[in-house]
């Protein structure tokens, strides 16, 4: 028994903002800071923001609908739906329920999975397991990130703005989805391996403190932008983690057609490329136009890569995610 990606879909909200517009909103001029820091540090020039009444489930449902259509399936063919994102509609119930309701699903099981920026690829890993253990045949894994709604704009302290803003203000909203389906063993397409590891010694880096039982106040619910320790450690993490994740697939770096990765900053992507010994044509950066979309980075990058002809059926893809936690995850798949 093996599994494969049979459909992919994405959705980007209509409204876009430049980095300078977002910096202005957060108080750069008011607090005497030179605009351009977000673009210089991350490479993000523009991002999409969801409408005030557009929820995570709305973004995920639109992407999910596109993915099911792309797979050539009907909604009734989906027997499990997993929602994996940083943001969510409510603390309870699982956002996946509203996504399923919006899609008109009736005979299915649904749940959420949270793992910071790796939530979506953790969902793929779980979908792979559900199918291989006979609990599902077609799993719709969706992501809907409305990170703009967890973005702090009411800064009154220049030092705090300077510390958080360049990373925190680069976030964007979007929806992404994959359909993972059962496949025959001789199918050339398929998920070849998954590999996840956590580095819990970093659990206090990049924490969104609100939303849990400790800090119930709304003022604690924002993307912190303080990921310095993780970005400083990313080269060592990549060196330690990457070789076993590729070995597990029986691949070499040069075999991989495309790396689809977490999009934090262009300079980090360049360093990872250098660390793994990859070529320019194997890597795709989308942060310039959509920013850092959290767990949605990887499905959005995959869809954009396919739409622009950078990946095609039969390509070997390495979905490689780094997340707060710290969590590292890889899904190696032949499209």
């Amino acid at each position: 028994m093996k599994t494969k990606i049979t459909g992919m879909g994405m959705y980007l909200p209509e409204q876009t903002y430049t980095s300078e517009e977002i910096e202005e909103r957060a108080g750069f001029t008011r607090l005497g800071l030179k605009k351009g820091l977000v673009r210089m540090l991350t490479g993000c020039e523009s991002r999409h923001y969801s409408a005030p009444d557009e929820m995570c489930s709305d973004l995920a449902a639109k992407a999910g609908e596109a993915a099911v259509r792309d797979a050539g399936l009907e909604i009734t063919d989906i027997d499990a739906l997993i929602f994996g994102a940083i943001t969510r509609d409510y603390s309870e119930p699982a956002t996946a329920n509203r996504v399923a309701h919006l899609l008109g699903m009736k005979d299915c099981f649904t749940f959420d999975i949270f793992n910071a920026c790796n939530a979506f690829i953790s969902g793929i890993d779980l979908a792979d397991s559900l199918i291989k253990t006979g609990k599902a045949k077609n799993v719709l894994v969706v992501c809907g990130e409305a990170l703009s709604k967890w973005t702090k704009f009411d800064y009154t302290d220049k030092d705090e703005l300077l510390m958080r803003a360049p990373v925190a203000l680069s976030v964007g909203d979007g929806g992404g989805a994959f359909v993972i389906s059962a496949a025959e063993d001789d199918d050339p397409s398929g998920i070849v391996s998954t590999y996840f590891r956590s580095l819990p010694q970093f659990w206090e880096v990049g924490v969104i403190w609100g939303g849990g039982v400790i800090h119930k106040e709304e003022s604690m619910l924002f993307v912190p932008g303080t990921v310095n320790k993780l970005t400083q450690a990313h080269a060592d993490m990549t060196k330690a983690y990457f070789p076993p994740s590729i070995e597990k697939a029986g691949w070499k770096v040069e075999d991989i057609d495309c790396f689809l990765m977490t999009q934090i900053a262009d300079w980090i992507l360049k360093n990872i490329k250098k660390t793994v010994g990859g070529r320019d044509d194997q890597f795709i950066s989308v942060i310039k136009n959509i920013g850092n979309c959290g767990a949605c980075n990887i499905p959005l990058t995959a869809c954009i890569a396919r739409d622009t002809g950078k990946i095609k059926k039969g390509d070997k893809l390495c979905l490689m995610g780094g997340a707060a936690g710290a969590s590292l995850g890889t899904v190696n798949v032949v499209l």
Binding site: K34, G36, L37, M40, L41, L162, M163, P166, N228, T231
Partner: peptide, 14 residues
Amino acid sequence: NSITIVQMFLTCQD
């Protein structure tokens, strides 16, 4: 700190 370096790059660029 890293943000100071980014600020220096930005000022030089401008």
